[in-house]
Design a protein around this nucleic acid. Structure first.
Lengths: 141, 141
DNA sequence: AACCATACCTTGCATTGCAAGGTATGAAGT
DNA sequence: ACTTCATACCTTGCAATGCAAGGTATGGTT
């Protein structure tokens, strides 16, 4: 009986811990939705001016609290960007490691990056306006 | 024959016009995706400190270039926010108009607004870092 | 030989914004 | 009266995308 209680208790602790990690760590549902808008910009921006391979992108982003994504997110996205001609890939093998697939921006990828970052600025300023401004009775219609 | 050519020509013009309006106006596919993250924050922020009815929200947002949404977006979202207890609604009829459904923030809506806007700031600063910083060989791993 | 870390990829689901429709009501033309 | 228009709200089905949870292949270490 005591044994059983102990097991259940441990299971409960595990559950709680898991929940806390999930919750505090990175993945609110809202964060996920927010990334839907920004991730394309983010990836293009990581690739600007250099060649990077898949897992390296993941590691690069790992320091940014709102940008903690996984491989299941990254690889399909890279596929899409390649299909759209915004990035290109090549397999490169240095002597001491396994072959890696390095991505870099194409010409049209660079234009897109510029376009998206302008659009992003606009969005930031729009929301800034909403967060600072209103208060009661702002809009006389 | 000339008639047919004329018709096709007009159709083509219509198509082009339609395309241009769609394109230049508001709705890139990317803008739509970007809104998926921000719209909840935006609506809560519009409701902060006052009571507003549906179409009024739409009009309020109309001046912001990245926030031009339609009723098909708004009403389902208001429904969801109500279901989640973040906002509440009441029908109000002033003497000179038709009854309108006015929405306002609940207690938990206000906390959520605070939480989301903090998360938003984090995201903005993360992306700012990516857009300004990198360039070639920034990340020694 | 067994194991682990690195690297890439795939499948199916959940969420959400939106176009395109719809209903109801009152006011304004005719 | 009757049609038409503007206001107000709502619904349905689709498209796009992030992601968890799986998988494969390879080379080094024990």
């Amino acid at each position: 009986m005591q044994g059983m209680v102990a097991v259940d208790y441990n299971l409960a602790l595990q559950g709680i811990l898991f929940y806390m990690i999930k919750k505090s760590g990175q993945n609110n549902k809202w964060d996920v939705q927010l990334r839907k808008g920004t991730l394309e910009l983010v990836i293009l921006s990581v690739l600007r001016g250099r060649k990077v391979y898949g897992l390296e992108i993941l590691k690069s982003l790992h320091i940014l609290p709102t940008m903690q994504i996984t491989e299941g997110t990254l690889y399909p996205l890279l596929d899409r960007l390649k299909r759209e001609g915004l990035i290109a890939a090549e397999w490169i093998q240095t002597e001491d490691t396994r072959p890696r697939k390095y991505y870099h921006l194409t010409q049209s990828g660079e234009s897109k990056l510029k376009l998206l970052s302008e659009r992003w600025s606009q969005s930031v300023s729009d929301i800034k306006y909403l967060l600072n401004n209103p208060g009661p009775k702002p809009l006389d219609q």
